[in-house]
Structure formats: C-alpha cells, structure tokens
C-alpha cells in the first residue's frame, strides 16, 4: 500500500464465540480525509471501531496505521491505552463518555495527561511547582481554551460536564479527543441525538478539523446528511462484511446498499434465485 493511507485494514476478523461480528473486512482511509463507515444496525461498525481503538483484540487480520511523518504502527498488536498514547488514535463514544463530575476544562486537561505527566517529571517536579511545570500547565490550559473556543463552550468552561446540554456534551467529547493531538480521530455516531442546526454545526467543526489540523477522521454515522455532506469516502458494512466502498454519491446509488438499508422486493429475490438456478 502506498504512503497516502493513514489506516489500512486488512482481512480484519472479529469473533465472539461462535458469532462472527466482522469477517474479513478490508478497507483503507486516506490521510487528511473524512472516511465514513455506515451500515444498518448490527452491521459491525462499532466492533470495527473497538478493534481500531484497542478495546477489542481482533481475532485475525491486520490494522496498519501510518502517521503523516511515516511512522507505522500495527494496531492489532498494541492494546488499550497505548493506541491513543503511542499510535495517536483518539475516539469518542456512541453513548457519550465524559467525566460528568469534572468541569469541561478539567475534561480537556485529563486528555492531555501523557504530555502533562512528562512535564511534571512524573509528578515529582510538579509537586514542588517547578517553573517548567507551571509553564507546561499553562500551555495545556491554553490548548484546552483553544478547543473550548472552537466548539463554542468557552463560556461554560467551569461547569460540570454532566450539567451541559446533550449537544454540548457531544462537542466537548470531540474537543477532548482533539486535545490528545490525534493523527486519526474516530467518531462513533457524533450526530446522534443532535437537531438539524447542531448537526450542521458539527459538519462545520469536522470539516475545519480536517482542513486546519490535518487530522484524518473516521466516523460511524446514521445521519445521512452528515455522511453525504462531509465525507470524502464511504464504506458500507452489512453483516460484518463490506458491501460497498466509494464516494458518497457512488455509494448512495449502489443497489446493494439500498437493499441492505431498505430490503428488496420479493420478486427481485425470486429473480436472483432464478439467476442462480435454484
């Protein structure tokens, strides 16, 4: 594979006991692009996400991540927190997982844990308030402020995250993921539960993340207005396998995709069966 792919998924397989959630899935995501992963409920989208972000260890296959700088990582061999720490893959969750009892600002500070941990000399320098630590902390607060401003939450920086309205929580979670300075940002249904206006705002945010920060985005989404408007590349899953792959327009007109989403007429099934000679 050439170097312009940030993520190459090769024959990814995920089994849960006898159930094959993802069976031999292959796709690629390009640098600086927004790649959407769509499919009906139960198609295995979130399972793919959990494999990429280290929450599941794949039963088989390869997940190769290439940074813009050229460093490559085999994600199936890294696990857990290292995927975010070393391979720089950040994610959000389908059901928002903020730290509800911490303020919005604190949420973004926690996201910068690894950088701050180094700056605080593994806590020991920080304990005595060494100037270099203070400077690093100020930089972290500035970064958090930048992202709070970007998602329009700067006025609510000191409010508990659990107190924010639903749409704000969604955006705060994206800001938190961006504070880890990811190379690949994985968003699990970022538009779920958003109204039309908020959804449009999300589109704008994601497009600007791509344009200004060069962050590649991989997203799962049901909201077709989001998928069709912002994604450069769409991959359609059904029953754990890929059924279509291409530009949003091409995918939208693909009969297999329409069939997977809407089902097919009975006479069409009969026609196919006749063709197969049954």
């Amino acid at each position: 594979m050439s170097n312009d792919h940030i993520l190459v998924v090769d024959q990814l397989m995920m089994r849960f006991g006898g159930i094959i959630a993802v069976g031999g899935l292959s796709f690629t995501a390009k640098h600086g692009e927004i790649t959407a992963l769509i499919g009906p409920n139960g198609a295995g989208k979130t399972t793919v996400f959990n494999c990429i972000t280290g929450f599941y260890r794949p039963s088989g296959g390869e997940l190769r991540l290439t940074h813009p700088g050229g460093a490559t990582f085999q994600l199936e061999k890294l696990n857990d927190f290292r995927i975010c720490k070393i391979a720089k893959v950040a994610r959000t969750f389908q059901n928002i997982r903020l730290f509800p009892g911490m303020t919005a600002l604190e949420n973004l500070m926690v996201a910068q844990h690894n950088a701050l941990m180094r700056a605080s000399g593994m806590t020991f320098l920080g304990l005595f308030g060494v100037p270099s630590w203070r400077a690093a902390e100020q930089r972290a607060i500035d970064r958090a402020k930048f992202w709070l401003d970007r998602v329009g939450l700067i006025a609510r920086a000191d409010d508990a995250a659990g107190n924010l309205p639903y749409g704000d929580q969604r955006r705060l979670e994206i800001a938190r993921a961006m504070c880890t300075e990811p190379a690949l940002l994985c968003l699990d249904e970022p538009a779920a539960g958003l109204n039309a206006r908020e959804s449009a705002g999300l589109n704008e945010l994601l497009l600007s993340i791509r344009a200004e920060h060069g962050t590649s985005v991989l997203l799962i989404e049901h909201d077709m207005s989001v998928v069709m408007e912002i994604s450069d590349h769409v991959i359609v899953l059904d029953h754990g396998t890929k059924i279509a792959d291409g530009t949003p327009r091409a995918v939208r007109d693909d009969p297999k995709v329409i069939a997977a989403y809407l089902g097919v007429e009975d006479d069409e099934v009969a026609a196919v069966e006749r063709e197969l000679g049954q």
Binding site: F55, D80, C84, A90, F93, M102, V110, N114
Partner: peptide
Amino acid sequence: EDEVACRALG
C-alpha cells in the same frame, strides 16, 4: 468518573 474513557485518552 469513567475508566473506559480514561483508556481511550491514553
């Protein structure tokens, strides 16, 4: 607050 979110943040 949330162990899973912590892991996702590295």
